[in-house]
């Protein structure tokens, strides 16, 4: 505490920079010692619930026949950008089937890598590139979902919004229809319907 007084009294505020650096190192050291226990930690409650929503979309949306090569091709849930779900999503859909069809999770770094995907979760890390990503996906029968601001405004189909601690859905039904997708009223009813160009 004496050093704080010294800094504040002396007016040599730049000295704080030095202490700041030291402080950051200490924090990093603390973090490092804590990292082992954290390695297998599940995602936050928010992303656990969002993962379950993705699973629900797999159940309650219908794709045109052309979206699947045959009856046994898996329904693919893709994640574009940083993965907030970790192994939780893989565990969640393991051994699940939609009719005869198994579920699979794939991760993509870039939009051009996306092939044979049915539900695409676009991570917040991609928010700066929405206007480049979404046009590429149009006409591919991919249900696009994100929790980033302005996703539906840029033409995305489903946006997760957290309102007073609860997850709400905003769905651009028109955009989904345009790609040949049908979303069940079980999901539509509790959701907010948005039109093109709106959040």
């Amino acid at each position: 505490m004496a050093f704080l007084t010294a800094i504040a009294c002396g007016g040599k505020w730049w000295v704080v920079g030095r202490w700041w650096t030291v402080g950051l190192f200490v924090l990093c050291a603390l973090r490092a010692t804590a990292a082992d226990s954290a390695a297998v930690a599940p995602p936050s409650a928010e992303y656990q619930v969002k993962a379950v929503f993705l699973f629900n979309f797999a159940q309650f949306a219908e794709w045109p026949a052309r979206a699947f090569a045959d009856a046994r091709v898996p329904l693919v849930i893709g994640i574009l950008g940083d993965d907030p779900f970790g192994a939780y999503l893989d565990e969640l859909v393991k051994n699940e089937k939609i009719g005869e069809r198994p579920l699979a999770v794939r991760r993509y770094r870039e939009v051009k890598d996306i092939v044979g995907c049915h539900i695409l979760f676009v991570s917040r890390s991609e928010a700066a590139r929405f206007d480049r990503i979404i046009p590429v996906l149009k006409g591919q029968s991919i249900l696009t979902i994100s929790d980033a601001d302005a996703f539906t405004r840029h033409g995305g189909m489903v946006r997760f919004v957290t309102d007073s601690g609860k997850i709400r859905l905003r769905i651009n039904v028109e955009a989904a229809k345009a790609c040949g997708l049908t979303i069940s009223s079980k999901i539509i009813r509790p959701a907010t319907i948005v039109t093109a160009g709106k959040d």
Binding site: N56, S164, K166, I167
Partner: peptide, 30 residues
């Protein structure tokens, strides 16, 4: 939070009722 298996059995309405406020904050039940 319920187990993954239990979460999967919830309806959309029930999922929307779960308070997911980041645990780093006190949940804001305004």
């Amino acid at each position: 939070l319920p187990s993954p298996g239990a979460l999967k059995n919830l309806t959309i309405g029930q999922l929307m009722d779960i308070d997911v406020t980041s645990v780093s904050k006190r949940p804001e039940k305004l």
